[in-house]
Write a protein that binds this DNA or RNA. Structure first.
Lengths: 130, 130
DNA sequence: TTATCATTGTTATAATATAACGTTTGTTAT
DNA sequence: ATAACAAACGTTATATTATAACAATGATAA
């Protein structure tokens, strides 16, 4: 369990591609990029993605159905994610702001729900596109 | 523009269903529910959904590809949304917390991005499921 | 060894969403 | 009222995203 380091072959391939990418990648675009490496089916991509998410190596941008590598070395398990998303150029930036993270992690719903995890997505125009 | 009140026939039908539902509804489940009313194609659903979102009548739960009615009468345009989602029973609850909303609305990204909108999704176990 | 468990490869299919087209309805200005 | 325009409609087809199911392989541990 939580074999934090060892990635399987397919997991490594998928992670490499996501890490090299400049922006979020979609599952099928990953697939097209690895067909030369002998990966032929969506399942193989989605399985790798699932594990990488579990390990906190990547995150899913829910509003875009796309995946980005995690930069903040400390989020072993991705339970507190925040992103800024440019609506023009589609750039996505992971926000690692301790205060924000603490504020949200300690946020408690009135109706007695205790949170294990959150995902926050901000939208706007990035510096360049403004 | 922003004819805030008048909904078209299809928009009204779709909104009614979402409002009556106990939890988030998926587009195709809405579709199956309105085929008796003469709506036959996904496009008709998705078009209504898009408009209803624009008007702030409903919200999309991105992590579930599902739609819920907006309860807080003041969010004419849904630019600041937050939800609590139970991972067991799938219940979704809209969070309207003025402090949270202000905190996030005024949150500014270091890299000079100005936000127009955000969506926050909390996950955990609701009171019942705990 | 044998049992167990994660990973792989593969085929098929399900679920979610949009494109493109022409028609109809509703609104606004003259 | 009617012309002009915008919004909504209906329809067919297709694109995109994601999972089911099954058999084989490899790695780990009792």
């Amino acid at each position: 369990m939580a074999q934090a380091q060892t990635l399987s072959r397919n997991q490594q391939i998928v992670l490499n591609i996501i890490e090299k990418a400049k922006g979020p990648l979609k599952a099928y675009s990953i697939l097209f990029n690895v067909q030369k490496k002998g990966i032929n089916a969506p399942q193989q991509i989605y399985r790798a993605l699932d594990k990488l998410i579990e390990m906190g190596k990547i995150h899913k941008i829910e509003s875009k159905n796309a995946f980005v590598a995690c930069r903040s070395s400390d989020c072993e398990i991705s339970k507190a994610t925040a992103f800024s998303i440019c609506e023009s150029c589609e750039m996505v930036d992971e926000i690692s702001d301790t205060k924000l993270s603490k504020y949200l992690s300690s946020f408690n719903h009135k109706k007695g729900m205790k949170f294990k995890r959150f995902n926050l997505e901000f939208f706007g125009l990035c510096k360049k596109c403004k």
